[in-house]
Write a protein that binds this DNA or RNA. Structure first.
Lengths: 194, 194
DNA sequence: TTATTTACATACATTCTGTATGTATGTTAT
DNA sequence: ATAACATACATACAGAATGTATGTAAATAA
């Protein structure tokens, strides 16, 4: 079993340093040599474990998504009220997505590099699926206006959160911007309530 | 003046075919040879006129943005009512962004390739500035809830529209999806109304 | 203990972008 | 009208990056 844990260690090292590089320079601008150089191995190891550059990126994306989903889960569990859980979840997403180690991969490069189909497939296993589930429940409980499509609403909310995070992160005063954005989101969510 | 119009023709050809290629294959996956090959010139001409690959992409983005902005302008002008103009503008954006020749460049590659700063700089000269202006006016006229920040609201609306378009374009039934999304957007906008 | 798989390294082929240079044609100044 | 210059490209080349094919030592299985 010494071989397996060695492999596991190299894979994790690759994912971790790749995440840093992808975050700092973006997918296209990071070379694989840059990544393997940081941990003193060669591209041979990388190609052995991940097949190609995209394979490594997907592995990084998985880690990022898992982290976000966990944050949301944790935060929204702080309330018993179903509607409050939605609000808490949205706020948690904003907080988590704002973190440097998540932002670019989650909001910019992820969708662009992987393309819509592959991206939403991954997304649906994580944060977006949580949001969809919550909204489906709220709709079933009659807490959301009847005229509204659950999937369309999920999309609209998700999109607004994404763009909001990007704006906040580039605002002159990010703290204030975050407050403003969260306030707008609260109003928005309330607008969908029955 | 014969030289100038020749140059203008080549530039337009490059922009047009580049737009097609960028739309079909994305920025990273299109090679410059592919573009110049289609119109039987060499990369020399391309580099002469646009400096580099990014320069050509920016030129394409400008064209796309201008088109979208014009659609919005035109549609929203169909009403005298200020609030209706906002709604019409949002709907027009959805329609325009859904067009194949705009979608990918506007919603996926544009922001990812150019990065937030450069993208918003271009965006602020076109569609986003129109939206911001409209919302600013509505706020000044007391038609929007007081607690809401104009810039944050603009961001939220813009983000929801973007994501909505992407979802509609990949839906099994795009026509229905579009109707659903527009309905959600109307509800959302109303939620911000005072 | 021999065979085979695993985890890499090394070497190489290919494909891009970008730059430097060459050239013919158009434009301007005298 | 012609010399000087600028423009609009084409051509050739350098450099970087991905991906693939092959080699190898260590671990594991037979």
């Amino acid at each position: 079993m010494k071989n397996q844990e060695l492999a596991e260690r190299t894979k994790n090292s690759l994912i971790n340093t790749a995440r840093v590089q992808f975050t700092e320079k973006g997918y296209a601008e990071t070379s694989l040599e840059e990544i393997v150089g940081k941990i003193n191995i060669t591209r041979g190891a990388l190609y052995h474990h991940f097949g190609n550059k995209l394979g490594l990126f997907k592995a990084v994306v998985e880690v990022v998504q898992r982290g976000i989903a966990e944050s949301i889960e944790q935060e929204s569990a702080k309330s018993e009220n179903s509607w409050e859980q939605l609000v808490l979840g949205c706020h948690a997403f904003v907080h988590a997505a704002l973190l440097i180690e998540n932002r670019r991969i989650l909001l910019v490069d992820g969708p662009a590099v992987l393309g819509w189909n592959e991206w939403s497939e991954i997304d649906e296993h994580h944060s977006e699926s949580r949001l969809l589930q919550k909204i489906t429940d709220l709709k079933a409980d009659g807490l959301i206006k009847d005229s509204i499509s659950v999937k369309a609403l999920t999309t609209v909310i998700s999109g607004s959160l994404n763009e909001a995070v990007l704006w906040v992160s580039h605002a002159e005063n990010p703290e204030q911007a975050k407050d403003e954005v969260l306030a707008v989101i609260d109003v928005m969510l309330n607008g969908f309530r029955k």
